[in-house]
Amino acid sequence: MAIDAPARARRRPAGWANALFVLPYLIVFVAMIVVPLAMGMWLSTTKSDLFGVEAQVGFANFTRLARDPIFLETVWNTFYFVLLTVPALTLIGLGLALVLNRPARWASVLRTIFFVSTVLSVTVVTLVWQLVFTPDGGLIAVAAEALGGSPVAFLNDQDLAMPAIAVTTIWWCIGLPMVLFLAALQQVPRDLYEAARLDNASRWKTLTRITLPSIRRTFLLVVIIEIILQFQLFGQPQLMTRGGPNNATRPIVLFIYETGWRQWELGYAAAAAQVLFAMILIAAMAQYFVASRKDDR
């Protein structure tokens, strides 16, 4: 296995030359991701606004965050929202993909219909769902009244507001997991299903023994993507509830926006952003390691 010295010497320059191919992307990555990330970390240790840094405060912003009941509520709200949406998006996305993974015309029409909500902007989506949820002549209110019930103010009820935002988000975002699962399902070798049929395997057994193991990497990908996306909840509560009622729907990103832009506390907002970054990183990595371990076994 040992490589002789002249061979090593011949290969080294070629390796560096190859690295030049990734240089354009590397420059953009460093300029647009690494530098802002480092600047954000530095800002989180300052007392500053958009017009300058007033003082270096070390970790004071982080200790203040730990004592800030509103921030702690936003952390809980964000986790709650992720819990409400990520499993639902993954399972519903998978379910739709399983049902629509066939060459029939109706399946392709339905695939388009389910995906089309994804291309709408958050403004349109929240407007549509506000019209659904409003107790003053909203879709659900009208239906409830027709059935003899009374309208429910979903967005003005502390317990129902976040689930209402979760439903809106699931409707809006379901297209991406569905498409990812569809792509994965189409990669599963057909001969496995043929073999299962020859063995008289039930549908359930086919699903659990062939389909799901075959798309487990996509499953992991969907979960990680959705965790990252849903932790960044912002537009829906900003437009539908403004974080209310009684802070019940204020997520971390809305807190960051309000603190940085409305209160002009950029350093404090940057500290909250670092906490969010750490949370997303830990959640995504934990999911990745758990799934990788299962794979290894």
Binding site: G243, G244, P245, N246, R262, Q263
Partner: peptide, 20 residues
């Protein structure tokens, strides 16, 4: 900072008035 303060005063007033 009257603008963000107005929001906070309104949020807490709303919580008190609605009984939250």
């Amino acid at each position: 900072r009257q603008f963000p303060i107005e929001t906070i005063v309104g949020q807490e007033s709303a919580a008190a008035i609605s009984g939250a």
